Structure formats: C-alpha cells, structure tokens
Simulated scan of single mutants.
Amino acid sequence: MLGRRSKVHPAQVEHIHDLLRQGKSHRDVADLTGLSRSIVGRVARNEIPSLAAFQPATVGEGSMSEKITDAEQARRRREVDEVRHSSAMEGNDRDAQTHADQEAYVRGDLTLDELIERA
C-alpha cells in the first residue's frame, strides 16, 4: 500500500484548483472549503493529488506496453520513497515482494490500483 488515504476527496482537489485559477488566495480557498490553509497549499503544490487525476501509465485499454513520462516516474519515485520512509519510521518491515511491486509501479509496469490490490 502507498500510505494512508488522503482525507481530501478528489472533487475537493478539483474545486481547490478551480478556485486558485480564479485568483482566490489560499486563505480564501481554505475558508470556502473548510480545509486548513496547509492542506490547500499542499493541494496547490500537487502534494495531495486527486486520485481521479492520476494519469494512466499507458494509453489504451489498461495496456502497460507504452512507457510513462519521466515526470510521472519521478512523481511515483517520490511517492514510493515517502511510503518507505514512513513505514521504516513506524518500524514496519517490507518484504521482497512488496519492494518489487513498488519498483514495478515506479517503472510503470503496475497501475496504482494494481499495486494496492497486491498489498
């Protein structure tokens, strides 16, 4: 698993981005959504992406035959590294299969749903 689920609903993430594009300040967006300014800032920096906004790793009907972008791979690497660090801080050991699955996700061989399913 890639860490705990976000408390921010995908629709909220889209709403936050819409409000920011309209020129609203982080404080205004926080007041309008009922979320903290910290959360609004993290959403604005794409640190809390909408689950609906995850781009498929490849084009087509779930086919993993085409490569993901370098930016997507870097995002996935950061995500996996954060999860590993968090797990280590909590004293949780990961097995070799989990490590291999995470690496497959970073490469684009697995989607996020497939990775979660394997956890």
Rank of each mutant, 00 (worst) to 15 (best):
A53E: 08
L110I: 11
R75N: 07
L115H: 09
A57G: 12
Q55E: 13
Q73G: 09
R42G: 00
R94D: 01
E90R: 15
I16C: 03
A119Q: 14
E66Q: 12
I39M: 06
A74M: 14
G108D: 06
A100R: 15
D95Y: 06
P56V: 03
V106H: 04
K7L: 08
I48F: 00
R42Y: 10
R21D: 13
E117S: 12
G23N: 05
V40N: 01
G34M: 05
S25F: 07
K67A: 14
T58C: 13
R37W: 01
D109S: 14
G3Y: 10
V43D: 01
I116Q: 10
G34I: 11
T58Q: 07
D95W: 07
Q102T: 07
A30D: 01
R84T: 11
R5F: 01
R4G: 11
L51H: 06
D18Q: 15
R94W: 14
A71R: 13
H85N: 06
S6N: 04
I116P: 00
G60Q: 03
M89L: 15
R107Y: 12
G108E: 07
F54P: 00
S25H: 06
T58V: 00
R45L: 09
R45Y: 02
V59N: 04
S38T: 14
A74N: 12
R5G: 04
Q12V: 04
G108P: 08
R107G: 02
D81I: 06
P10H: 03
H9R: 12
K24V: 00
P49D: 01
H85Y: 08
R45S: 08
M89W: 05
L110S: 12
G91H: 10
T111N: 02
E66S: 13
M89R: 15
N46E: 12
E47R: 12
K7N: 07
G23L: 06
I48E: 00
L110H: 09
V8D: 00
V80T: 03
S86A: 14
M89P: 00
L20R: 10
V29A: 01
N92P: 00
Q12W: 03
S50Y: 01
T98K: 12
L2H: 02
T33V: 08
P49M: 04
H85A: 15
E47W: 03
V29I: 08
T111A: 08
H15D: 03
H15K: 13
D109M: 11
A100P: 02
S87A: 15
E47L: 11
E103T: 14
Y105C: 06
D81R: 13
N92K: 15
Q12I: 08
P56K: 14
H85T: 15
L20W: 07
E114W: 10
G60A: 04
I68G: 02
R75V: 05
F54K: 09
N92D: 07
L32I: 10
Q22V: 04
V8F: 01
S25P: 05
G41Q: 03
T69D: 01
R107T: 09
A74R: 15
A100F: 11
M1I: 08
E66Y: 10
A74P: 07
M89D: 09
R76S: 04
L2P: 15
R78A: 12
G34V: 09
N92R: 15
E61W: 06
E103S: 11
V59I: 10
R94I: 12
D18N: 11
A71E: 14
A96L: 11
R94M: 12
E82M: 05
V8R: 00
V83M: 13
V13W: 02
V40H: 01
I39P: 00
D31A: 14
E72S: 13
